[in-house]
Design a protein around this nucleic acid. Structure first.
Length: 280
DNA sequence: GCCCAGGCCTTTC
DNA sequence: GAAAGGCATGGG
């Protein structure tokens, strides 16, 4: 085991996990158990430190996962100086968020499941998926389940996916696993955000928003700006926007924010869905 | 019991 | 190209 220690001002366990970008984590005392692909770590913020505990072999994986090379002080500063009061406030309140560099396959399946769904239910469905199809692993004496391998996902039946509550999304799962087996990730590796998004949108069940989420959280395309119901709400209420086509709303924000789009989007989403309630 | 959720697909105009 | 309707399910 190894402990990775970071200053907590721009990296807070609660903000980073509860902001809505990751579905596999459970609260554990003061901190959390977190799962990504077939790995696990513990994360806790106490005072001015955030501490990650993981297996020695996974150190590089988690250093990268928590986006250690990005300057978040600069990002929060840019948000404050954006000229939008709500973005300045959202970044100030959510400055402990880091955009996680998650597993591409896991993000594709997770956000495929997310459409027209709520976060608590997305979490429980993904947990069922891992329990049923994932390999059992051990972390310092604790058992957990890995995210299923591509073979396990592809081997499961449409009926199975319906049984765990996926409804009409069950068939999308089969189609996605087939395309991944066919080399989808190689095909999009090293391609630019525009190409990747278009390619992902050719997959049944993946539209603008799911493609943007997969690009941002799984492929680290920070010029992505996913627009869901919460972003549409903040756009109308706090940016006084009049567009209703989500594709145009995405364009509105990406043209303004460029490579900061993904970070700012997450501050805004977290603020509107969670933080705003606690300050009123 | 009802409304809604990190939307997308199909059909229709 | 835009608008409308349908969709499975269960959290709150």
């Amino acid at each position: 085991m190894v402990n990775l220690i970071y200053p907590s001002e721009y990296f807070n366990a609660n903000d980073t996990l509860e902001c809505g970008q990751i579905f596999r984590f459970v609260k554990n005392g003061n901190g959390y158990n977190l799962f990504s692909a077939d790995k696990m770590c513990k994360i806790v913020t106490v005072g001015d430190q955030t501490v990650i505990t993981c297996q020695k072999n996974d150190e590089q994986y988690f250093r990268n996962f928590f986006d250690q090379n990005t300057d978040y002080a600069n990002i929060v500063c840019r948000a404050r100086e954006s000229g939008y009061q709500v973005l300045a406030k959202a970044a100030q309140l959510g400055k402990g968020v880091r955009i996680l560099r998650q597993d591409a396959q896991e993000m594709l399946f997770s956000f495929l499941i997310s459409q027209n769904n709520n976060i608590p239910r997305i979490k429980s469905t993904i947990e069922k998926l891992c329990t049923a199809l994932g390999e059992q692993k051990n972390f310092n004496g604790e058992n957990y389940y890995a995210f299923p391998t591509l073979n396990a996902l592809d081997g499961a039946s449409v009926d199975f996916y319906k049984q765990i509550g996926l409804g009409y999304r069950a068939e999308y799962m089969k189609n996605l696993s087939a395309q991944l087996k066919d080399g989808l990730l190689c095909e999009i590796a090293d391609k630019d955000a525009c190409f990747v998004k278009k390619r992902l949108m050719q997959i049944k069940g993946i539209g603008e928003k799911v493609a943007d989420c997969a690009c941002l959280f799984g492929l680290y395309k920070t010029e992505s700006f996913p627009v869901d119901v919460w972003i549409e709400k903040i756009y109308k209420e706090d940016f006084y926007g009049t567009l209703s086509d989500r594709k145009k709303i995405t364009a509105f924000f990406t043209q303004k924010f460029g490579v900061y789009s993904g970070y700012f989007q997450q501050y805004l989403f977290y603020y509107k869905r969670t933080l705003e309630k606690s300050i009123k």
